[in-house]
């Protein structure tokens, strides 16, 4: 029983990407300024919640055809894999490595394995929270 929410839906189409981009930004700057995987993930979820409010569940599931439980599983694997990878280099579990690299497009960039771990956090947060909201919201 959806009414014709033209304004909401139009605004959402625009705002969704702004929030999403902001969440990606927050995620990447986390190591230096406030932000990180957790907040980034939550903001992405917020964007998806906005979509859910403006459109119905089926439309959103069609637009974002991910199984979010698998997303959070991938996130967990990524996080654990990063932590476990260190033992192959004969250093204790959860030892991170970082260095500056010269990349073709970005120039000199500082890369940190903590970022991969944070990406895992991001995926788990998005996957789990969206799973919760979709299942609760989708329940009849």
């Amino acid at each position: 029983m959806k009414t014709n929410d033209v304004m909401l839906q139009t605004a959402t189409k625009l705002v969704f990407f702004i929030i999403f981009l902001f969440s990606i930004h927050i995620f990447f700057v986390g190591h230096y300024t406030p932000g990180g995987g957790f907040v980034g993930g939550l903001l992405t979820t917020g964007a998806i919640v906005l979509l859910l409010l403006a459109f119905d569940l089926k439309t959103v599931q069609k637009a974002l055809p991910f199984n979010f439980t698998i997303v959070s599983a991938i996130g967990l694997l990524l996080a654990f894999g990063t932590a476990a990878a260190s033992i192959f280099f004969n250093v204790p579990f959860f030892t991170h490595a970082y260095d500056d690299f010269t990349l073709p497009l970005f120039g000199v960039t500082s890369l940190h394995t903590a970022m991969i771990f944070d990406a895992g956090v991001y995926l788990v947060v998005v996957g789990s929270t969206v799973t919760m909201i979709q299942t609760i919201g989708g329940d009849k």
Binding site: G30, H31, Y32, T33, P34, G35, G36, G37, F38, H96, H112, A114, F117, D118, V121
Partner: peptide, 10 residues
């Protein structure tokens, strides 16, 4: 890193 909170977390 620069953000102590996040560095502690990850």
């Amino acid at each position: 890193g620069g953000n102590i909170v996040n560095v502690i977390l990850v």
